[in-house]
Nucleic acid binder design. Sequence first.
DNA 1: GATTCCTTTCGACGTTCGTCGTACATCGAA
DNA 2: TTCGATGTACGACGAACGTCGAAAGGAATC
Lengths: 106, 106
Amino acid sequence: MAHARRPPLVHPEAADLNLYAVLHALADPTRLTIVRTLREDLERACGTFPVSVAPSTLTHHFRVLREAGVIHQREDGNRRWTTLRYDDLENRFPAVVDTVLRAAPA
Amino acid sequence: MAHARRPPLVHPEAADLNLYAVLHALADPTRLTIVRTLREDLERACGTFPVSVAPSTLTHHFRVLREAGVIHQREDGNRRWTTLRYDDLENRFPAVVDTVLRAAPA
DNA sequence: GATTCCTTTCGACGTTCGTCGTACATCGAA
DNA sequence: TTCGATGTACGACGAACGTCGAAAGGAATC
C-alpha cells in the first residue's frame, strides 16, 4: 500500500485564506520574486527560481507561501513542483496579486 | 525661538517609500483598520480610531505606519492629527491601498 | 498653581521572523 | 550499488514583532 514518505503537504482551503497572512507572505523580496516568476511561468521546480538564498531558507519561504495559500506544491519523484493559486487568490482577494506585482520593483 | 518640545516626527520622502515596508504595515488588522478609517475621514486625532488596543500599542502601530510612509502626523497642542498619505502612495504604488482595503474584511 | 486629558517613552514579555549550516531522505542515473 | 542532484528537517542565531503597564511630558482648563 502506497503512503507518503514525507509528511504530506498541507494547503489551506480556499475559503480559509486570510488576507493578513497573504499580505505578510507578499511582504518579502524573495517571496514576491517567487510569486512573480510563477505568474509568468505556470509551474516550476523549487530549485529553478531566480533568488539567491540558501536552500533551507528557500524551503522556509515556500512554507510561508504555502501555508498562506499563495502557492500549491505537489510531489513528483524527488522534485517538488510549485504553482500559484491564482484563481483562489482572485476569488477571495480580487486584483491584489497583480496590483502588488505591478507596484513591485522588477 | 520656537522649537520642537518632542522629538520631531520623521516621515520618509515620497521617493523613498518601500513596497515591502508598506505591505508589512498593511498586514495587521489594527493598522489596516486605521488606514480604512483614514480613507473615509480625512483627518483624525489619535484616540478616535475604532480599535481596541492599549494606548501604547496604538502609538507603536502609528510609528510603523508613519515610518513606512503610509500616514502623516502633525502636532497640534497635545493632540496629534493623522492623515493618510494617499497621493504619495498612489503615485508610487497605484491602486495598492484601495485594492487591499476592498479585499479586507469589514 | 493644581488638575485633567492626550499621547508618548521606556522597559518588559513571549513570539515570530529571516537566515544559515548541517544532516538526512529520496530519486534517478551511471 | 554507488553517486549526484534535489529538497527537507532540525537547531541555532540575532533581530524585530505585537502586546502591555507604569511613568512622564506637554497642553488646556479649573
